[in-house]
C-alpha cells in the first residue's frame, strides 16, 4: 500500500511538473496578439527602409573589415611564420594561433553570408500582407547578425593573442624590452 502511494505521488509530481513546463513553453511561444500584428503592419515599411540602409552599411563594413582581417592573415601572420620557419626558430605557438585565426576568418565569411542571405529574404517579404512572417524573419536575421558580431569579437581576441605571443617570441632578440 505504501509503495502504491509513493508511486502515485511520483507520477502526480511528474505530471504537475510536465504541465508547468508546458505552460512555460507556451508562454515563450505565445501567439502574437492582434495589436502586435497591427503594430508590425503599421511600422514595417519604415522598418524595411531602416533594414535596407543597414544592409548597405553592413555590406560596406564587411568589405572594409574583411580586407583588414585578410591583410593581417596573409601579409603579417603568414610571412612572419614563414620567416621564423626559414630561420629555424621555434614558432609553433604563433603558427597555431595563425591557424585558429584562419578558421575564425572562414567562420566570419560564412556567418556573414548567412546573415546577408537572411537579410535579403527579409527585405523581399511583403510585410503589409505578411507581418508575422516579416517579424519572424527579422528575428532570424538578428540572430545571424549576432553570430557575425561574435565572430568579429573572436577575431579581435585572436589578433591580441597573436600580438602577446609575438612579444614573448621577440624577447629573445631584444632582451625582454618591447
Amino acid at each position: 500500500m505504501k509503495r502504491v502511494i509513493i508511486f502515485i505521488s511520483i507520477v502526480a509530481t511528474a505530471m504537475v511538473a510536465g504541465i508547468i513546463w508546458q505552460g512555460s513553453v507556451k508562454a515563450d511561444n505565445a501567439p502574437m496578439t492582434e495589436a502586435h500584428i497591427a503594430r508590425i503592419r503599421a511600422n514595417c515599411v519604415d522598418a524595411q527602409s531602416t533594414l535596407s540602409q543597414l544592409h548597405a552599411s553592413d555590406a560596406l563594413l564587411r568589405v572594409n573589415r574583411g580586407q583588414l582581417y585578410e591583410s593581417i592573415s596573409t601579409k603579417l601572420m603568414a610571412p612572419l611564420n614563414s620567416r621564423i620557419s626559414l630561420n629555424r626558430l621555434d614558432g609553433v605557438s604563433l603558427v597555431a594561433i595563425a591557424a585558429t585565426y584562419e578558421g575564425q576568418l572562414t567562420y566570419f565569411r560564412q556567418s556573414y553570408q548567412q546573415y546577408e542571405e537572411a537579410m535579403s529574404d527579409t527585405l523581399k517579404i511583403n510585410c503589409t500582407n505578411q507581418p508575422v512572417a516579416f517579424y519572424d524573419s527579422v528575428t532570424d536575421t538578428r540572430a545571424k547578425r549576432k553570430k557575425v558580431h561574435e565572430s568579429t569579437v573572436a577575431l579581435h581576441d585572436t589578433i591580441r593573442n597573436y600580438k602577446d605571443e609575438f612579444e614573448a617570441f621577440a624577447k629573445q632578440f631584444d632582451g625582454g624590452s618591447q
Partner: peptide, 15 residues
Amino acid sequence: DSFAGNAMDEQTLSI
C-alpha cells in the same frame, strides 16, 4: 565593434 549595437532590435524598428 563591428555588427554590434541595437540596430535590429524590435524597439528600434518599432515592431
